[in-house]
Write a protein that binds this DNA or RNA. Structure first.
Lengths: 152, 152
DNA sequence: CATGAAGTCGACTAGAACGATCGACAACAT
DNA sequence: ATGTTGTCGATCGTTCTAGTCGACTTCATG
């Protein structure tokens, strides 16, 4: 699984928005600075997040961006889907729509299992978790296993 | 996670090779036909699989490709790594090497947890499993959950 | 009510990756 | 020796990535 720069920036920006008082706008400028995101590129990303209804913005001086919903209700998976489509796709197709001949017949089930496991993490971590620095217990456990930190 | 055409083809080709008698070569031609893979593109893929030591080939008439090791010892993860680098990468970097400022501090742990879950499936399904049409029990269970088949 | 500090939006671009295609060459069973 | 098969590198059009840029719209404030 390849997390693009855009997706990475999007999650970090959202985490930063989750960390400030709800309803208070944060300027794109500060956001860019605090997470070290290229300013112009961040504009594009915020635009997509706004189009997906995850972010609201205020124009004018004193303007900026804020979360459209409580941070505890927005998952990392939602943010990723907003900026790159579906979490899992095989050759551009959803795994459940695939059909393979011969020896690969059961391969779609493997892809579906992968996606289920992916969701198991990404749909359970919220922006509030990130902002508070507290991950769900079993995710933290998964991440704590030294084996999980080995390259490869 | 986006599975590219190349990765998809590679796994299917390997599954097909796993299905024939060990040590017996299968022609690229038949392989391409049986899994409906563009012939020339398959050449490239087989080349990479050979370079990674997963496949051996015999030239000349009666030539073809075969697995370099028993099908039960080759996992789907190995095949994927052979044709697309590491299973998980964030902006081209391994998740364990990342460091984020501010509210995103714990994000790397999320990426590591994702990768661990990914491995949990991909490193446990072997080519022999695919060829025999029998997935490990808990993978099959994961894939059986109707929720896992919902889009999104 | 004029300013100017902010967001909005679409166009643009350089470079890489993707998904192949092709042709010249090497090996080897018959 | 022949012809079938694999080997390998070059090439190629398209799409994606990661941005940049600039004209335009809002709107809080003085």
């Amino acid at each position: 699984m390849r997390i693009s720069a855009k997706a990475d920036y999007a999650v970090r920006a959202m985490a930063e928005l989750a960390a400030i008082a709800p309803g208070q706008p944060l300027k794109a400028e500060s956001l860019a600075a605090s997470q070290d995101i290229p300013r112009n590129f961040l504009d594009n990303i915020l635009s997509e997040l706004r189009a997906s209804g995850l972010v609201r913005t205020l124009r004018g001086p004193e303007g900026g961006s804020m979360l459209a919903r409580p941070a505890a209700e927005i998952t990392v998976a939602e943010v990723l889907r907003a900026v790159e489509g579906p979490l899992a796709a095989v050759r551009g197709t959803r795994p459940e729509a695939l059909e393979y001949p011969g020896a690969a017949t059961r391969l779609p089930e493997v892809w579906v299992a992968v996606r289920a496991n992916l969701r198991g993490v990404l749909e359970r971590v919220t922006l509030a978790d990130l902002a508070a620095g507290k991950l769900p217990a079993d995710i933290a456990r998964l991440a704590k296993d030294p084996d999980a930190w080995l390259p490869h």
